[in-house]
Design a protein around this nucleic acid. Structure first.
Length: 749
DNA sequence: GTAGGGTTAG
């Protein structure tokens, strides 16, 4: 902490105790009608009820006190400072100016000004004032000072400064047994993320009060030690400390995090039985608990009965509906709530985005531009993630520019989101640019960049980056390794993949998870080493999941191994009976191997079991607006032009010798209809729209929710040559850059 | 001589 930059405090200057100096710069008149002690001047009585004073009232009293010379008296001055620091309309800059003009502030005055800053937006000032107190005043901090200073350190999660304060406390017998001081230390260590230290302090408190227990329970709750938090709650009883509303807030929050509805209901009735004080915060915590436990009915009935509600109450209900898929109800709550703050917007935007509804998320983000709220970092992370999902590069760029224009600080989270957005929207070089511009990178930032290079098939660069990450002494985590293995897979780097996989545990201390094994299956399978891949699946230390069997099935489809493919598909379907993709890949495998009977059988079976395929959906962004297409979509306002463009494409492709790949159509229909179904695939509609609405040299960027089909892949290649346009297509697994008639994936995906 | 610590959403 930069305590040295503290501006010198006026009180630090040597002072002569001139009775005529009232500290206001004017000489006191000797002609006061009645001489009275400054401490009981009637004007001070006006400050008694400072909760009711507004800024003007304080200013008037301040002026009178100046005229009367009362600010030269430490006690009277402290009364004014208390009023202007603690009144609800407190203006801290004003308070600070008053403080700076008090000639000899007493300890009470120091405590007030430190307290006021500890819970203000910049708690660093409280710590600066504390160090100024130490260095420039004749007073020593007391049992009142420390809780405020420690609170400031807690707000900043400043472990080093907090520990220094703790060390000072430990030297004084009076301080180290004061329950207020100790409670604030329990809170401090929790806020710094060290629940162990927090508990150590708690255990040494000689006479614990309810706040001690609450602080310790909260420390455990926030440290993810839910069961221990509940255990501590039970222990309170044994020590004859009655839980209060604050206790129950933490306990309810733990129930929510555990998702334990039964326990939550018991807690709810405990609150009613034990006459725990009602509070808005407690009601909100219970609401949140019911929502997290998935009981909307309980949440609704509590919400309906609440006498007062704030935007947290409304937002919690909104999230409840959204998380249970009732987006109309969520939107209704959003529209009905009396006051929407940025958090309400964030909640709905995030819910859309996290439920795979990026278009709704971005529509709402657009709506926010005209609303009475300002996007914050949470908003932008959610919006960027929605851009990533739908491939909305233009909007993503706009958000990036918005951040720069508004000097929004690029924290790790936002940096990661930006890199992820640029990578997933197809502009990995822009992602690299962002990566190169930030000076500090945590493991998530590095991992996102490695993932970006991986999905574009730039495996070598991804591995180089990993080496740089090691040189920068950033420890990789389990996600980093998934991304590295993914890079090896997309670039066909078999030996490298094998090497990194084998080093995970012995060198990096990270146990390979099912995901990592699946990546290995993918790496080996793609390279045609099917038996070795099968060995990985069968010798995993955990039961192989759908992703491992899926990787093996995909590899079998590429390398036309029907027997192993059937086995992998069977195992996959045992785990995920409704995995439509598995049937499609198996059917493609049969078709490629000329097993038409099997194709027909599979087709019939799928029809009989009325298995619904996840609808293929392609989106393309033009001038900041995302357009979505389903197969055969006729809902777009420009549908006539799009279908004319498709006809143009069909005739030019035919002239180039293209034959539709009917084998890929699973429906039992005539050849003509098959051709039609093929040419109406969502990615072709999006390509047609892209040809219409964008101009060379801008690439046509398309995002597809499923794996791109063989036929669309061939068409995209041809279109890139015939129309001389670059097409960048992102499918569920990777990017395809189509240029001059060929694709960056070398037809291997 | 005055006062203090702990709690809810995204």
């Amino acid at each position: 902490m930069a305590t040295r930059i503290l501006p010198s405090h006026p009180s630090a200057l040597p002072r002569t105790h001139d009775p005529n100096n009232n500290g206001s710069g004017c000489s006191r008149s000797n002609n006061l009608p009645v001489r009275r002690k400054a401490e009981d001047h009637p004007v001070l009585a006006l400050l008694d009820d400072h909760r009711r004073l507004d800024a003007d009232g304080i200013r008037r009293i301040h002026a009178r006190m100046l005229r009367l010379g009362l600010l030269g008296h430490p006690y009277s001055a402290s009364r004014l400072l208390a009023a202007c620091s603690l009144s609800p309309s407190a203006d801290l800059r004003y308070a600070r100016r008053v403080f700076d003009h008090i000639p000899a502030p007493n300890l009470f005055t120091w405590n007030i000004i430190i307290r006021a800053h500890a819970s203000a937006p910049d708690p660093r000032l409280a710590l600066l004032l504390f160090s100024s107190l130490l260095r420039h005043s004749p007073h020593s901090p007391d049992k009142f000072t420390f809780p405020f200073a420690i609170k400031a350190a807690a707000e900043l999660a400043a472990l080093r400064e907090g520990a220094a304060l703790h060390a000072m406390v430990a030297k004084s017998p009076l301080l180290r047994s004061d329950v207020f001081v100790l409670n604030s230390l329990v809170h401090l260590y929790a806020a710094c993320g060290d629940s162990n230290l927090s508990l150590r302090v708690f255990e040494k408190i000689p006479e614990r009060d309810v706040v001690s227990w609450n602080s310790a329970i909260t420390a455990l709750a926030q440290g993810g030690r839910w069961d221990e938090a509940l255990q501590l709650f039970e222990e309170m009883d044994g020590e004859n400390v009655r839980p209060n509303d604050v206790t129950m807030v933490s306990v309810a929050s733990v129930c929510g995090k555990k998702g334990d509805l039964e326990l939550g209901k018991r807690i709810h009735s405990y609150i009613e039985r034990n006459d725990i004080k009602q509070s808005l915060i407690l009601d909100n915590a219970l609401l949140d608990m019911f929502v997290k436990c998935g009981s909307l009915a309980d949440a609704e009935s509590l919400f309906d009965g609440m006498a007062t509600k704030d935007s947290i109450s409304w937002t919690t209900m909104l999230v409840g509906y959204a998380k249970s898929g009732q987006f109309d109800a969520a939107r209704r709550v959003f529209d009905e709530m009396p006051r929407r703050d940025i958090a309400s917007w964030n909640a709905l935007i995030s819910c859309y985005e996290q439920s795979g509804r990026p278009k709704e998320a971005l529509d709402l983000f657009h709506e926010l531009q005209h609303a009475d709220a300002t996007p914050d970092q949470v908003t932008l992370v959610a919006a960027l993630s929605a851009c990533s999902q739908s491939g909305a590069l233009e909007l993503g760029c706009w958000i990036h520019a918005y951040m720069e224009k508004n000097n929004l600080e690029l924290n790790f989270h936002l940096t990661t989101s930006l890199i992820d957005m640029y990578s997933k929207c197809g502009d990995v070089d822009k992602a690299l640019h962002v990566f190169g511009c930030v000076s500090r990178r945590d493991v998530f930032v590095w991992s996102a960049m490695i993932a970006g290079l991986a999905m574009h098939g730039r495996g070598r660069e991804a591995l180089d980056l990993f080496e740089q990450m090691e040189e920068a002494k950033v420890e990789p985590n389990t996600v980093t390794f998934t991304n590295i293995l993914c890079a090896c897979s997309h670039a066909g780097l078999v030996e490298e993949g094998r090497l990194y996989f084998s080093q995970m545990l012995p060198v990096y201390g990270i146990s390979p998870t099912a995901d990592h094994y699946s990546c290995m299956v993918d790496i080996l399978g793609r390279a045609g080493r099917l038996e070795e891949a099968r060995g990985y699946v069968e010798n995993m230390p955990m039961p192989p999941g759908a992703s491992a069997w899926g990787a093996l099935l995909g590899a079998c489809a590429v390398h036309k191994n029907v027997e192993l493919g059937e086995l992998a598909c069977k195992r996959l379907l045992e785990l995920e009976p409704r995995n439509h993709g598995a049937y499609v890949i198996l059917s493609n495998l049969y078709a490629r191997s000329g097993k038409w009977d099997a194709v027909a059988m599979l087709r019939k079976w799928m029809k009989d079991s009325s298995l619904k395929k996840e609808a293929g959906c392609s989106s393309i962004e033009v001038h900041g607006v995302v357009h979505e297409f389903l197969v055969g979509d006729i809902s777009h306002p420009m549908k006539e032009k799009i279908y004319l463009q498709l006809e143009d494409m069909a005739s030019r492709l035919k002239a180039a010798g293209y034959v539709p790949n009917r084998k890929l159509v699973l429906q039992d229909i005539e050849d003509d209809a098959k051709d039609k179904a093929l040419c109406l695939h969502s990615e072709k509609l999006a390509i047609a729209f892209g040809l219409l609405r964008t101009c060379s040299p801008a690439p046509i960027r398309i995002t597809k929710n499923l794996r791109v089909c063989d036929d669309c892949h061939s068409v995209a290649k041809l279109v890139s040559g015939i129309y001389n346009r670059n097409i960048i297509l992102r499918d569920r697994y990777r990017f395809h850059h189509f240029t001059g008639g060929s694709c960056s994936c070398m037809d291997y995906w």
